[in-house]
Simulated scan of single mutants.
Amino acid sequence: MRRIFNLNSKISRMSTKTLVLIPIAVGINLIGGTLCTTLKLPLFLDMIGTIIVACLAGPWSAAMSGVLTNIFLAVVASPVYLPYAVVSFLCSLVTGYLVKWGAFRNKAGIVLTWLSCALTNTISASLVTLYVYGGASGVNSTSVLTVTLLATTKKIFISVISSSMIENMIDKGVVFIIAFLIIDKLPRHFLNQYATNLK
């Protein structure tokens, strides 16, 4: 059990190719995340690179990409992103392990991975939003939807989790489509250098 959570062990077992891939993924995530924050879009698009890493290099490499993305977004965009690093960590592991178990080899598996990632993000992000930010982080226009639902339901938990679910179903759907299209265009000889989870 201790070995599973030994981060140093996970990092030391990563190949040089994987370690090079992580900053590239973080860069892709930052472009999407910063763009959405700047334009106040009701999306995040900050997991595209993480999904690609999950497919190529596995769950723990993806988790590192996700956490680093949140740290950098907290620096370059808004400190609000920092507590959501745990959300990225959990979503990366869920996605990475589903890919590792072969879920990305067919359309049904991709849909299952998308839904699992969206559900994980909805629950964990809602808890952060509720207990860290009191129900609204203000990082994008989703807060407007939360306030609208709150005016109708009068229940903060239902309002936050409902707006988060709507947002994540759309956001993760777009993210998975973009990530899939990028992976699909990668040369086979490049894919062969990484994990065989897509074969």
Rank of each mutant, 00 (worst) to 15 (best):
L39I: 07
S65I: 08
L41V: 01
G173A: 02
T95E: 05
R188C: 08
S164K: 00
H189E: 13
S78C: 10
I24R: 00
P23C: 09
S143Q: 11
W101M: 12
S163R: 00
A151K: 14
N192C: 06
V76D: 02
K40F: 06
F5L: 14
I158V: 15
M64G: 12
I22H: 01
L90S: 14
H189K: 12
I166M: 11
L150M: 12
A25R: 03
I166G: 14
K172M: 12
A25Q: 02
V75F: 15
G173F: 04
F176S: 04
L191I: 15
C117K: 11
Y194I: 08
F72E: 11
L56Y: 11
I51P: 01
I166K: 02
S92C: 10
A179I: 02
L198R: 05
L112H: 07
K185L: 13
S12C: 07
R2L: 14
L73A: 08
W114Y: 15
L30A: 07
I28S: 05
T146R: 03
R188H: 12
S159Q: 05
N197G: 05
G138C: 10
I177T: 11
S164N: 14
L30Y: 01
S65H: 02
K199L: 11
F176Q: 05
T148N: 08
A54T: 10
W101R: 14
T152Q: 11
G27E: 08
T38I: 10
W60K: 09
L7I: 15
N106Q: 06
L186K: 04
